[in-house]
Design a binder for these strands. Structure first.
Lengths: 164, 164
DNA sequence: GACATGACGTTACTACATAACATAACGCCA
DNA sequence: TGGCGTTATGTTATGTAGTAACGTCATGTC
């Protein structure tokens, strides 16, 4: 079970994640760290079974529950997000030690190039929380996703979607 | 292939849907009408395979594509919505002939009783569209869902979630 | 040393969704 | 009126996503 090699950027994020988990008293185990690394390495949202395939390279005998448990942990800790429309996972770009584990994020999904952009727009969250509150609804978590065409693809000729 | 019996409320909505499709020049076939009826009858979001089971009662030989094609049509026409977090479908309560086929809706999902409430809050949509516009993103469709506890369940004792 | 806890292994299964090709009904129009 | 395109549906098979249930192993603790 060798350690996979991650990019420098990923290693930095992994180090941050380690610090965060230590402070919270939760275990960023080797397995969970690997899965987080795989999610972070992808420049696009990655499906659980795709992660599983990659995980198996260095982690023999990995099965669906192996990946899903790790993903559940990472979601709980707010280290990754799930993009519901894609049934896929992305690393969270807004890691912050002091924040709630699950901060409210929004995603813009480009139908042309597949690129996903994470937003953290307070106006959107505020509007949603307010609308819920008016109905006496107590929010626990939200999914906000918008599909469409990103700026790069809108500018590119029809035959050439902006690359990943 | 007998016609299933729907409630009076559902029949009313089906009649509206019929009118709307006629005006648009699209075909609300018997099959599509049945599936729409089944979705509308449910007081909670219904999964595709649940719909399939019910469809089979009156529609021998129905298979997954039978249901999914009908659902795709109904989604296109804005007659139903998909709740991504539940992989399930609900009837749209905001049918309007003049509107876009896909209007921006939001959903509040109660984790206790499973009830789903559709909102159509202009503030939420406006905030999201604005945030996207600032990044040069051209919106095509959005998913906005919030999970939590509905007013009824929040008021009810812990052991007795408010009924469906 | 018995026992609780948390992480992970392993097997099997359930649920969700689509590909690919066949068939049938309809309108069109040459 | 026969051929053709279009749209809806039938049919078979397969791909993808997610979970249940139970076993094992390490660690801590009383």
């Amino acid at each position: 079970m060798l350690a996979p090699a991650f990019s420098k950027e990923t290693d930095t994020l992994l180090a941050q994640a380690r610090t965060l988990c230590d402070r919270r008293g939760v275990q960023l185990t080797e397995l969970r760290r690997k899965v987080l690394g795989l999610v972070l390495e992808g420049d696009k949202p990655t499906g659980a079974y795709d992660l599983l395939d990659r995980l198996r390279v260095h982690h023999k005998g990995a099965a669906p529950p192996t990946v899903y448990r790790a993903l559940d942990f990472l979601l709980e800790q707010g280290l990754i997000h799930k993009v519901e429309r894609l049934s896929a996972f992305v690393g969270c770009i807004h890691q912050s030690e002091d924040e709630d584990h699950h901060h409210a994020a929004q995603f813009l999904i480009c139908q042309r190039c597949g690129q996903v952009t994470e937003l953290e727009d307070p106006r959107v969250d505020r509007a949603l929380v307010e609308a819920a509150r008016e109905l006496g609804f107590r929010p626990a978590g939200s999914t906000v996703e918008m599909e469409g065409t990103c700026a790069a693809c809108a500018a590119a000729p029809a035959s050439a979607p902006a690359p990943g």
